[in-house]
Design a protein around this nucleic acid. Sequence first.
DNA 1: CTTATGACTTTCA
DNA 2: CTGAAAGCCATAA
Length: 122
Amino acid sequence: MNFFISAIQIVEQIPVSRVATYGQIASLCGYPRSARAVGWALHQLPENKLSKVPWYRVVNRKGQISTTCLGHDSAEQAKLLKNEGVAVNLLSGGYMVNLEKYLWKPRKAKLRHVKILNAGIV
DNA sequence: CTTATGACTTTCA
DNA sequence: CTGAAAGCCATAA
């Protein structure tokens, strides 16, 4: 669960109009090769929108929204990103974001033991 | 402990 | 750019 908490905290630190990749988050958590674990962690995120975790700002390495899990609506994610000023290109059945322009470049990862009870997790 | 799964990543063609 | 195959890590059963 510790990994889950760390991943969530990283995602929470993603600023507006910026996106991050799974590998990036994993690296910030201390596990550069745990991209899949990050994906798993976000998969456990509550479906409701009560969660403060900006999961929609997380995309794969191509800057594309991998809709492997049909549970979450990719259109909704793209909509949320557009609403924040992020240009989302619609491809054949997929959305893509310009990483070179919107990729989040964190100077330092803050992994304090912050209470994330309000995040809707636990 | 072994197997299976997943919102991933890298490499090769 | 797209597609296929192997690799990686954490969690569940």
